[in-house]
Design a protein around this nucleic acid. Structure first.
Length: 932
RNA sequence: GGCCGAAUGGUGGAAUGGUAGACACGAAGGACUUAAAAUCCUUUGGCCAUUGCGGCUGUGUGGGUUCGAGUCCCACUUCGGCUACCA
């Protein structure tokens, strides 16, 4: 019986399914372990070989934990809402649900072939009403809560209402969009609409007029993490800034907790750092600047309070509310023109053209420390969304202020001794202060750090401002003008946004005829018939963004069919949180922030028992594609081989990697590939057409996609799994290269040959030799250690070494082969299962019932006794250079090793005529003799 | 501009401060075979010697710490990733 991967893999996949081997239930007799993959968005392209990398790594860990006696939760599902399905629907008129379901079916069949140990009974889909019921529920809870800054906790909005009735706004501690002032009497006098508007200022899920990233091409707003360099991440369309009335989540209120929580997490430093930067805590001060000849007082934020003596002008963001308040009548037109110009620039254009632009408002502010009048300007280099949207400009010590001052010829006052500001600003926070004294405050001679502290103290004491911690993290914009997303459980009762009662959930997504906005510009839901409550109130037309459904999905897996609540207390108390989360770094500032926020909110409500959702996070690297190119000579259908392309004017064209082998093009296949290449001519080198290559993202458009199905078909799932792990460290990005896969496949065959020779069963009950025992125990120790640190590539190597050794020793002893099979089970589960059953049935065919699954076997333990060496070879070095090795018994003392080394005949040669200065002996490691 | 990470043979990659290059691919040579595939054996960082069993050199560059550095420290170069008028 030869190794037949198709037969084996089919057989055991069926067995696992029939026997529900991977079904998981709460079991209080066992410790739990929760292993989770970031669930995929099922795209139309299907899985390529890069996708399973993380899934294989987590599958190995899940199986390993199970073999070690843990009750392992390892579920899978689909992030099913998303733009591509909707874009496809717009183009083809197909319902996104239909294409999504087709894509899911394809994903599932691809996943099944790789042999994962998922409990599919717990599958979830974000577009399933049973699931988004709880997304809508969480939204209602967020609407009904505010964030108490003092207690750092979400609390019911009713408490805040009671507070307002008692005290008005004075002294409240709720996180707010903007400061509001009203008395208890004023509050009581408000009608429903007015109260609703006021409460929106505090709710965690609120409607707000905010600057949003508007993408005209996609017809929707996008969150900050969905935009990069002024274009949408999906599609790469330009994004502009627009003021819109949108649902938002007060994520910013949780910024301190999101930041502090990072310390307790077992995540990589780099991803924690990325989140820290995204949250962007900065300590500084807020200061008031009075506007001359006016009552207006502007608040600025600065981290460089020490530079206040160098402020020579102020700058407002074009969108700042202060612009209208301060602009003098004669400057109105100029300012209006400038703002108009900025508005029509997209974010991308703003970034692209680095030209300094701005306009003078005609107004002057008064420097609170020097009393000097300084001009107030407007410029787009100041962002409305950060700090207060107003800055005090210190051109000598900020490069942007410097560029602005030079352009508009504003004064530059250096504040640090020795700083040369004739060519550029001096931005470093170091040096001694100069030019910084008034009758009230003298900073001269202080170090920058001391000056910052002293200034802060001074302005607090004098009431000029206050110490303030600012965060870059913005509230999440939660409305999307799309169809394929969760509907909001919201209706408008006489214009007042109102939540549906919980018993009306889930509010199901309605059917519509077309997936475009309405003629009047409303979102697609405006096309739905009868999209209103029973009482005839209109329902919200926006839908929720992609991150809504993925923010709490890990909780739902704990209790996926619960109709009463998101997750039962029992299930949550048992499974607690994700112990190991595996996924890509691209979610660092999106999903992983929102999910932590969402979890912390539910924690505040007492719905979940852990403050953080994901205890340990492993980021698998991306598998890149290796693309091939052909070079077409311009305006011809002639292609020139890569080595000769410099002699012609050519255009590189991607060519399907499946018709290229070892960078040599199959020219016949190329002619058949596309009709336009049917009569292609080639200029060859040495009779071959050599393609160029590059490492790029694996994608259809680059023609470099390798489908795991093809690998499974040819080599088997076990080979695919082992090979993906063997490619290199899980966390590292690397290009896919099928070249080495034969080595892994050979290993499995060699392993198989330890058990079978043809049809003959080779396994015996003989006592294994000491070498064989040493080999297997070395492997047990190595693999056990490697799995804990995700060093799967070296584990696979260790398997190869062990199997090679056992082959050479001609060892077929059950005592050795049994632990070998169990060790292999996480990596190559199909062949391990086959051999496990064969071992139990002594190689007979009807082995299925002989023993239970290998998944429940006990993980082998190594015995140090077998690892001991009879003698240890120690390298002997002279002045750090190794000259020979010395065999000593393992327990030899330092002194004896030293004596043996000096007495050995080889040593004499190196010592001769020199004096020994020093001898370093590290037992079992090295002997270094310093001579001179 | 800021932050993070990386740099080791023809290639992917191994090396708790202790014999650098494990393991695998590729390549070369050989065995078996009519032949091929498959399998097995040998060699494989570079240079020199290979009728002497060896020598020299070597982990991006330059310095440092150490008996000893791919590994630790400082500076630099290059390449990746993330992020960005964040005051």
């Amino acid at each position: 019986m030869d190794y037949n991967h198709k037969k084996i893999e089919q057989r055991w996949q069926q067995y696992w399914k029939d026997n529900k081997v991977y079904h998981t239930e709460i079991n209080h007799d066992k410790p739990k372990f929760y292993v989770l993959d970031m669930f995929p968005y099922p795209s139309g392209a299907g899985l390529h070989v890069g996708h399973p990398l993380g899934y294989i790594a987590s599958d190995i860990f899940a199986r390993y934990k199970r073999l070690n006696g843990f009750n392992v939760l390892h579920p899978m599902g689909y992030d099913a809402y998303g733009l591509p399905a909707e874009q496809y629907a717009i183009q083809t008129g197909q319902h996104p649900e239909k294409t999504t379901n087709e894509n899911i079916a394809r994903y599932r069949s691809q996943l099944d072939r790789i042999g994962f140990c998922y409990d599919w009974d717990r599958e979830i889909r974000t577009c399933d009403p049973e699931y988004y019921h709880w997304t809508q529920w969480a939204f209602i809870e967020m609407f009904n809560h505010y964030f108490d800054v003092k207690e750092q906790k979400a609390k019911p909005i009713a408490l805040l209402e009671a507070y307002f009735a008692e005290n008005g706004s004075e002294g409240h501690t709720a996180a707010e969009s903007k400061p509001l002032k009203f008395t208890a009497e004023e509050w009581k006098a408000m009608d429903d609409k007015q109260r609703s508007d006021v409460l929106m200022n505090y709710r965690i899920a609120y409607l707000g007029n905010t600057m949003v990233n508007w993408c005209p091409k996609l017809g929707t707003v996008l969150a900050n993490d969905e935009v990069s360099e002024g274009v949408s991440i999906r599609g790469g369309y330009p994004v502009e800034q627009k003021l819109m009335y949108q649902w938002c989540l007060r994520v910013s209120a949780y910024a301190p907790r999101l930041l502090d929580g990072l310390d307790s997490l077992d995540w990589s430093d780099s991803i924690k750092e990325t989140q820290r930067n995204w949250i962007g805590r900065s300590e500084g001060a807020e200061m008031q600047f009075k506007v001359a000849d006016s009552d207006v007082e502007m608040t600025i934020f600065t981290t460089r309070a020490d530079t206040v003596f160098g402020v020579t002008f102020m700058v407002l963001a074009p969108e700042s509310k202060y612009v209208d308040m301060v602009t003098t009548p004669d400057r109105r037109q100029a300012v209006a023109d400038y703002r108009e110009e900025i508005k029509h620039k997209t974010e991308r254009e703003r970034i692209a053209d680095k030209k300094v632009s701005g306009v003078f408002t005609g107004a002057y502010a008064i420097n609170p420390l020097t009393g000097k009048h300084i001009p107030i300007w407007v410029s787009d280099y100041v962002l409305a969304g950060y700090g207060t949207g107003v800055i005090m400009a210190v051109p000598a010590h900020d490069s942007r202020d410097y560029a602005f001052a030079r352009k508009f010829d504003l004064p530059v006052i250096p504040l640090i001794e020795g700083a040369d500001v004739s060519e550029e600003s001096f931005d470093a926070k170091e040096g001694k202060m100069i030019n910084s004294a008034s009758d009230k405050l003298d900073l001269n001679g202080l170090e920058v750090k001391e000056a910052i502290a002293k200034t802060k103290e001074f302005i607090e004491k004098e009431g000029l401002g206050r110490v303030k911690v600012n965060y870059r993290l913005r509230d999440a914009i939660f409305s999307r003008q799309r169809y394929w997303g969760e509907p909001f459980p919201v209706y408008y009762k006489d214009g007042v946004p109102t939540m549906l009662p919980l018993e009306k959930l889930p509010l199901q997504l309605p059917e519509i005829d077309k997936y475009l906005p309405t003629e009047s510009g409303e979102p697609p839901l405006g096309r739905a018939d009868n999209w209103q409550t029973e009482d005839g109130y209109p329902l919200e037309l926006n839908t929720m963004p992609g991150f809504a459904g993925s923010s709490a999905y890990y909780l739902r897996y704990m209790d996926p069919r619960n109709h009463e609540e998101l997750v039962s207390k029992e299930a949550n108390d048992y499974w607690e949180q994700v112990d190991l989360y595996v996924g890509g770094t691209e979610h660092a500032t999106g999903h992983l922030i929102y999910s932590r926020f969402w979890n912390k909110f539910l924690y505040d409500l007492g719905k979940v028992c852990k403050d953080e959702p994901y205890r340990k996070l492993v980021n698998q690297g991306m598998i890149q594609g290796r693309s091939n190119f052909v070079y077409r000579i311009k305006d011809t259908n002639t292609f020139v081989s890569a080595g000769l392309r410099k002699e012609y004017d050519t255009t590189p064209i991607h060519v399907d990697v499946n018709i290229v082998s070892n960078d040599r093009l199959d020219m016949e296949a190329f002619r058949k590939w596309r009709p336009e290449y049917a009569d292609a001519e080639f200029i060859l080198e040495n009779g071959e057409y050599v393609c160029g290559w590059a490492v790029e993202k694996m994608s259809k458009s680059m023609f470099n996609v390798v489908n795991p199905d093809d690998i499974v078909e040819r080599y088997g799932a076990d080979t695919l799994r082992l090979y993906e792990m063997f490619l290199g460290p899980v966390e590292q990005s690397k290009p896919w290269d099928t070249n080495g896969i034969d080595g892994v496949n050979r290993f499995i065959k060699k392993l198989w040959n330890l058990f079978y020779k043809g049809d003959k069963w080779l396994v015996t009950d003989e006592k294994p030799s000491r070498e064989a025992l040493k080999s297997i125990h070395t492997l047990i120790k190595k693999v056990t250690g490697d799995i804990e640190t995700f060093s799967y590539n070296t584990s696979v190597s260790a398997f190869m070494i062990c199997v090679n050794e056992l082959s050479k020793l001609d060892c077929h002893s059950k005592e050795v082969l049994t632990p070998l099979v169990v060790l292999l089970a996480p990596f190559a589960p199909h062949v391990a299962e086959e051999l496990w059953h064969a071992l139990a049935a002594d190689g007979k065919e009807d082995s299925e019932t002989a023993v239970s699954t290998v998944c429940d076997a006990p993980w082998p333990k190594w015995n140090e006794e077998y690892l001991k060496e009879d003698t240890v070879n120690m390298p002997v070095s002279f002045n750090g250079k190794t000259r020979f090795t010395l065999s000593v018994a393992p327990e030899t003392t330092r002194e004896d090793i030293e004596k043996l080394a000096l007495a050995s005949p080889e040593a004499a040669k190196w010592i001769e005529g020199k004096t020994i200065r020093k001898i370093i002996v590290v037992p079992n490691k090295i002997i270094n003799i310093v001579v001179g």
